[in-house]
């Protein structure tokens, strides 16, 4: 597993998701903190391309050796791509959570939702408030 990090070029959501903004689309994944809390991930139950996701609502589930947990959408939109590699290699979420362990790509439907996201510094402060 990689060392704890929260890249500066990403945005973060309170349910421990990261967002990489690319034009009118965004890539979602879970943060280092989230994958570390879950432990070794053994299965990813993910939606299909064309489905819609809603900010704050669960869009899939990750099963780790410890638990089955919801994964929450940080922003709303239509799914344009799903990381199909996770079907066979779900542990990529642990090994490279900001890279090969990405989960969804979404065409955003409400740019105003971006204001609810945190930058890396704010997210680390958020974590420190525990």
């Amino acid at each position: 597993m990689a060392a704890e990090s929260y890249p500066q070029d990403l945005k973060y959501y309170k349910e421990h998701d990261w967002v990489r903004l690319e034009g009118d689309e965004a890539v979602f994944g879970i943060t280092w903190f989230a994958q570390d809390a879950l432990g070794e991930i053994v299965y990813a139950d993910l939606p299909d391309v064309g489905d819609t996701v809603t900010a704050g609502a669960p869009y899939g589930e990750l099963e780790s050796v410890k638990a089955v947990s919801d994964v929450f959408a940080p922003l709303s939109g239509e799914i344009t791509d799903v990381n199909a590699v996770l079907e066979d290699e779900p542990q990529l979420v642990n090994e490279d959570c900001y890279g090969e362990g990405w989960i969804l790509r979404v065409r955003l439907s409400d740019q105003a939702e971006l204001e609810s996201l945190m930058d890396a510094e704010a997210y680390q402060k958020f974590l420190a408030e525990a």
Binding site: E15, H16, L38
Partner: peptide, 13 residues
């Protein structure tokens, strides 16, 4: 109610 509590998988175990 802490930020980490909601994601803490170990504590319930």
């Amino acid at each position: 109610a802490g930020r980490r509590a909601g994601a803490d998988v170990a504590l319930p175990y």
